[in-house]
Deep mutational scan, measured.
Amino acid sequence: MDETGKELVLALYDYQEKSPREVTMKKGDILTLLNSTNKDWWKVEVKITVNGKTYERQGFVPAAYVKKL
């Protein structure tokens, strides 16, 4: 869990989004888990830094590609 009590997951593999509802992740990324009720796709939040500014983006990743921490 992070400092706000949200559950975290670890990306076990790289994943490139294939639709606007998904998010890209790299092996080793730590993501915030938002919803894991679907056994195949989990909703996560990723933080992306571009030119020194951090953005948060929500989307789905394959559940088999992440592990709860």
Rank of each mutant, 00 (worst) to 15 (best):
E22F: 05
F60H: 05
L69I: 15
Y65Q: 05
W42D: 00
I30L: 08
Q16V: 15
Y65I: 06
N35G: 06
N38A: 07
K67H: 09
L31D: 00
N35Y: 06
Y65F: 11
G59K: 01
P62E: 02
V61F: 00
K27G: 05
A63R: 10
N35Q: 10
I30M: 06
S36R: 07
V66R: 00
V66E: 00
K67I: 14
T32I: 14
T24S: 15
V66N: 00
R57W: 03
Y15F: 07
W41M: 05
T54E: 11
V23T: 04
V44T: 01
G5L: 12
T24F: 04
Q16M: 13
W41D: 01
E7G: 11
M1S: 14
D2F: 04
W41A: 02
E22L: 04
N51Y: 07
L31I: 07
T24H: 04
G28N: 06
N38I: 05
L69A: 04
R57K: 13
S36E: 15
K67A: 11
N38V: 04
V44C: 04
K43F: 15
N38L: 09
K6Y: 15
T37S: 13
D2C: 14
K27Y: 04
V66L: 15
M1I: 11
K67E: 12
Q16L: 11
P20F: 07
V44L: 03
T4Q: 14
I30E: 03
M25N: 00
T37E: 15
L34C: 06
Y55W: 12
G59N: 00
V23G: 02
P20E: 11
N35I: 06
D14P: 05
G52S: 07
A64V: 09
K18Y: 04
E56P: 14
V44N: 00
K27T: 06
K27C: 06
W41R: 03
K18I: 06
L33I: 03
V9P: 00
T49Q: 12
V23M: 07
T54F: 10
Q58I: 11
T49I: 14
K6G: 09
P62G: 01
K47T: 14
K47F: 11
L31P: 01
K26N: 08
G28M: 02
K39F: 08
V44P: 00
T49F: 12
Q16Y: 15
L8A: 06
P62L: 03
E7C: 13
Y55N: 07
M25Q: 01
R21Q: 12
G52P: 02
V9R: 01
D2P: 12
L34S: 02
D2E: 14
K47Q: 12
P20D: 13
E56A: 15
T49E: 13
L10R: 09
S36I: 05
P62C: 03
G5F: 12
Q16G: 06
E22H: 05
S19H: 14
G5M: 12
D2Q: 10
Y13V: 11
R57D: 03
R57L: 05
D2K: 06
K68S: 07
S36P: 05
D14H: 05
K18C: 10
L31Y: 08
P62R: 03
A64Y: 08
L31C: 07
G28C: 08
Q58R: 11
A63D: 01
M25L: 08
S36L: 04
K53L: 14
G28A: 02
D14M: 03
A63E: 03
D2V: 11
N38T: 06
K39M: 10
I48H: 08
V61N: 00
V44S: 00
K43T: 07
M1G: 15
T37F: 09
R21K: 11
V50F: 11
E22P: 04
A64P: 08
Y55I: 14
I48T: 09
S36T: 10
G52Y: 06
R21A: 12
L69Q: 05
K18W: 03
L8R: 11
V46C: 09
Y65P: 00
Q58G: 06
L31S: 02
G5D: 11
L10P: 00
L33F: 03
L12C: 07
V46L: 12
K68Q: 07
K43E: 14
I48M: 09
L10F: 08
L8P: 04
Q16D: 14
G28Q: 02
G5Q: 14
Y55S: 09
T49W: 12
A63G: 04
T4I: 13
W42S: 02
K47A: 10
L33C: 06
E17N: 06
K68N: 06
V61A: 03
T4Y: 15
P62T: 01
G59I: 03
Y65V: 05
Y13G: 05
K18M: 12
K67Y: 08
V44G: 00
K68R: 13
Y15S: 01
Q58C: 08
K68D: 04
S19K: 07
V50G: 06
G28D: 05
D14I: 02
E7F: 11
K68I: 14
R57A: 05
E22I: 04
D40Q: 13
L31G: 06
V50E: 12
K53Q: 14
T37Y: 08
G52K: 06
G52E: 07
L12K: 05
L33E: 00
A11H: 01
N51P: 06
W42K: 01
L33Q: 00
G59R: 02
R21Y: 14
E56W: 15
M25W: 01
D14T: 05
K27E: 06
R21H: 14
S19G: 11
K39A: 13
G5N: 12
G52H: 08
K18P: 04
Y15K: 01
M1Q: 15
V23W: 03
V46N: 11
D40S: 11
L34I: 14
L34G: 01
D40G: 08
T24C: 06
E56H: 15
A63Q: 06
Y65N: 05
Q58A: 11
D14K: 02
V50T: 10
K53D: 12
W42I: 04
W42C: 04
E7K: 09
D2W: 05
V66F: 05
A64H: 13
L8M: 11
K26C: 09
I30W: 04
L12Y: 03
K6S: 10
V46R: 14
K26L: 07
A64Q: 11
L69P: 03
G28L: 02
F60C: 10
K53P: 04
D14A: 06
M25G: 00
E17I: 05
I48V: 14
S36A: 12
S36Q: 10
K6W: 09
D40N: 14
K47C: 10
S36D: 15
P62S: 02
S19I: 04
K43C: 10
I30N: 02
R21L: 14
T24V: 02
P62M: 03
K53V: 14
Y15L: 01
Q58T: 10
K27F: 04
I48N: 07
P62W: 03
K6C: 11
K26Y: 11
I30F: 05
V66D: 00
Y15A: 01
L8E: 07
K6N: 11
A63W: 01
E7D: 10
E22A: 05
M25P: 00
A63T: 05
L33A: 02
K27V: 06
V44Q: 00
D14F: 03
F60L: 09
K47E: 10
K43I: 14
K26R: 11
K26Q: 09
V23Q: 02
E45K: 11
G52W: 05
K39R: 11
L34D: 01
K43V: 14
